[in-house]
Simulated scan of single mutants.
Amino acid sequence: MKIEEYLETLPENLLSGEDVQLPEKSFCEIFKFVNLGKDDIFYHLGCGNEKGIELAVNEFGVKKAVGIDNNSEKINQAKKNLAEKNIKADLICQNIEDSILSDASVILFWFSDEKIINEMMKKFENLKENTKIITIWGPLPECLPDKVDFPYIINKAPFKKAKNMQEQLLSIFGVKCVDFITAWEFAERYTKSIGSPEIKNDRFLTIIQTLVIWINAKKLGVACGEEIPESIQTYINIMKMHFDIDFEYLLKE
């Protein structure tokens, strides 16, 4: 099956990110990366549970923390958990497209839905100067990142526009071209950063991410060399033979 068909076999809430929660270590890495502190007003869009908000308040001492999610059950439980710990924060049940972000200085925004991203980009264009938006895996569409510690990326308002996708891709990886080693290293960083310590299929996920990174680089003309690296071809064959997941067609498009 094609990789897209494989992804369609996964639960919808997993693909949408609805039930994907960042581990505590990831929040700590993100907050240190963005230099979150006492002068910041922090927004977590799609907060799910209260863990990120709790850490922002307790460990990083932000001036104000706001979590927004459209899942009322999760928001109600998060409110209850924070109240029991006597932690003051704003938890709002609404679609993030309806959120008001005018006072934000730092925003955590981890969404893959293209429609949501495009809607939020309209809001982000009106943010106050120097507001930092943290994304995971990729920067905001058509924007050059201000700071990268992959998979964590910061875009700062007003945004810097990339000349093309090649410029954007290379700005993320910090190299002149993407080879197998670069693709593997960054795929592994992503898997380890967002995964829990108990994750059992991290190598499988790393292989998939590596192939996605390299093939995208190839299609954009920023892969190193004209030939398919032996390691890439080996993993393409493994995915096909052992898991019936096809990547080969992507190289022909």
Results as ranks from 00 to 15, higher is better:
62 V>I: 02
114 E>Q: 10
142 E>S: 07
55 L>E: 03
195 G>Y: 03
124 F>S: 06
221 G>I: 03
92 I>M: 01
201 N>C: 00
235 Y>Q: 05
227 E>S: 11
44 H>N: 14
244 D>S: 13
41 I>W: 14
228 I>C: 08
172 I>H: 06
47 C>N: 09
162 A>C: 10
239 M>F: 00
3 I>L: 15
109 F>C: 14
160 K>V: 02
175 V>M: 12
230 E>S: 14
158 P>H: 09
187 A>S: 06
219 K>T: 03
188 E>G: 01
51 K>R: 12
244 D>A: 12
121 M>K: 13
98 D>I: 01
8 E>T: 03
166 Q>H: 01
94 Q>D: 12
49 N>Q: 03
38 K>S: 07
213 I>F: 12
223 A>S: 15
226 E>W: 04
188 E>A: 13
198 E>I: 00
141 P>C: 08
159 F>R: 10
236 I>Q: 04
239 M>I: 01
36 L>G: 10
18 E>T: 12
50 E>R: 10
199 I>V: 12
65 A>F: 08
87 I>C: 01
172 I>P: 08
87 I>L: 02
179 D>A: 11
231 S>Q: 11
94 Q>C: 15
129 E>C: 09
186 F>E: 04
33 F>C: 11
57 V>N: 02
194 I>R: 04
170 L>G: 04
248 E>N: 09
61 G>K: 13
83 A>K: 15
123 K>Y: 00
53 I>W: 06
232 I>R: 14
224 C>P: 07
13 N>P: 05
96 I>Q: 08
24 E>D: 04
89 A>V: 03
143 C>F: 02
220 L>W: 04
4 E>M: 12
116 I>C: 12
205 L>K: 15
152 Y>A: 09
106 V>I: 10
105 S>N: 10
201 N>Q: 06
23 P>S: 03
154 I>N: 11
154 I>Q: 10
